[in-house]
């Protein structure tokens, strides 16, 4: 199975090189697709081989970047894609497990961040609450709805292709999975996470939007 790794990046000039170097070191042949989501200063293209550089001229959001990466990958022969954050909070070592699950026939693979003592309490509660909420609405329980470390197969992309251009993308994918759960095989496994920035990522406002949008996805 040909798998591409998609890394959306916005103003991640400092952390991205280390992520790419480590990933390339571990997987010398894996195609890596970096989507620069209109960073204020374009991300410098590193000399690491085999990296596909895509750049949005304006900032569209994480959801739109993942979609651009997926469109590119599937139109260039990928059978599956793995989404990974560019800030180094996901360990590239885990990529192998995603590939294994995809090879074993899973359509969607969720890497759920293992709670640790470093996990901020607000995030822990938010995670649990959103999992229960999405489960009530869509009948799918994923212990970490908002984790960006996940993989999907080409066929799954056709079903879960999202409209959210920003942070709602992760929940929308699960919501769409809920709609087609009889057709799609999904699995989740725990991944190690390094919490780097307390104030980065999903904000309370994003969370509220996701909650209200979920109702809309349920009705539509």
């Amino acid at each position: 199975m040909k798998v591409f790794v998609i890394i959306p990046a916005y103003n991640e000039h400092y952390r991205l090189p280390a992520v790419l170097e480590k990933t390339r070191r571990l997987y010398p042949r894996l195609p890596l697709v970096v989507v620069d989501d209109g960073s204020e200063h374009p991300i410098k293209k590193l000399t690491i081989p085999g990296i596909i550089w895509l750049r949005h001229q304006v900032n569209l959001g994480k959801g739109a970047s993942l979609k651009t990466g997926a469109e590119y990958s599937f139109s260039h022969g990928a059978d599956g894609v793995i989404f990974m954050d560019s800030d180094g909070q996901h360990d590239p070592v885990e990529i192998k497990k995603f590939i294994d699950y995809l090879n074993r026939g899973s359509d969607l693979v969720f890497g759920s961040r293992r709670p640790s003592l470093d996990t901020p309490l607000v995030r822990l509660l938010g995670k649990k609450l959103s999992s229960v909420y999405i489960n009530l609405l869509f009948g799918v329980y994923i212990s970490d709805i908002l984790s960006g470390f996940r993989a999907l197969s080409r066929s799954a992309y056709g079903y879960v292709k999202w409209d959210s251009s920003r942070y709602g993308v992760e929940s929308e994918m699960v919501a769409r999975l809920g709609k087609y759960r009889k057709l799609l095989k999904y699995v989740e496994f725990p991944v190690e996470t390094i919490y780097i920035d307390k104030y980065k990522g999903v904000t309370v406002v994003d969370a509220l939007k996701i909650f209200s949008h979920s109702l809309w996805w349920k009705l539509s």
């Binding site: 085999g50 990296i51 895509l54 750049r55 001229q57 739109a64």
Partner: peptide, 20 residues
């Protein structure tokens, strides 16, 4: 307008894909 912009930006991005 958002959808139009997203479609335009994506199509241009995919056209300008650059591999090293």
């Amino acid at each position: 307008v958002q959808r139009q912009i997203e479609t335009m930006v994506r199509s241009k991005t995919l056209k300008n894909a650059h591999q090293k």
